[in-house]
């Protein structure tokens, strides 16, 4: 190798609008948004619902369930539980549904499949020795 031109320039000639239109990328974006948006709305509603109860339903929050443990404490600890739960859920969702497809698109871009000057792989003309070398590696 010894070719200083290749790492930094790997994305310079990429036509990102073309990538954005691919079915693969749209699927990645759909999967990402269909998880994070509803989840964000849900935990915000749950948190502010809890704060509203603590503010305006003191009687309800003060009902004792076991010994000195009241509804307010249980709901508060449930906030911790749901925060930990959503975290773990998101990590497993990302590992299964997001990371593989993102890695696939990344590989294709870095392999110059979306170059604005046409695909370098197999084209073999004056697109730069660094890119050609990279293409040849694939």
């Amino acid at each position: 190798m010894g070719n200083e031109a290749q790492p930094a320039d790997a994305t310079q000639s990429v036509d990102f609008q073309q990538v954005q239109q691919t079915e693969q990328f749209r699927e990645l974006r759909r999967r990402h948004r269909s998880f994070v948006f509803p989840m964000a709305v849900a935990f915000l509603l749950w948190y502010f619902g809890y704060v509203l109860l603590a503010d305006y339903a003191v009687g309800f929050m003060s009902i004792k369930l076991w010994g000195n443990i009241n509804v307010g404490l249980v709901l508060g600890l449930l906030q911790f539980a749901t925060t930990f739960g959503i975290t773990a859920w998101y990590v497993s969702y990302s590992n299964r549904k997001l990371d593989p497809i993102a890695a696939g698109i990344r590989g294709e871009i870095e392999g110059h499949e979306f170059d604005s000057r046409g695909r370098v792989v197999g084209a073999g003309q004056a697109a730069g020795t660094g890119q050609a070398a990279k293409g040849a590696q694939r």
Binding site: T11, F16, Q17, Q20, F25, A102, I109
Partner: peptide, 16 residues
Amino acid sequence: PAKQAEMEVRSLTGVG
């Protein structure tokens, strides 16, 4: 729009 596309693709895939 090209910059928007670049940011969106980069942000989700980590390319570059």
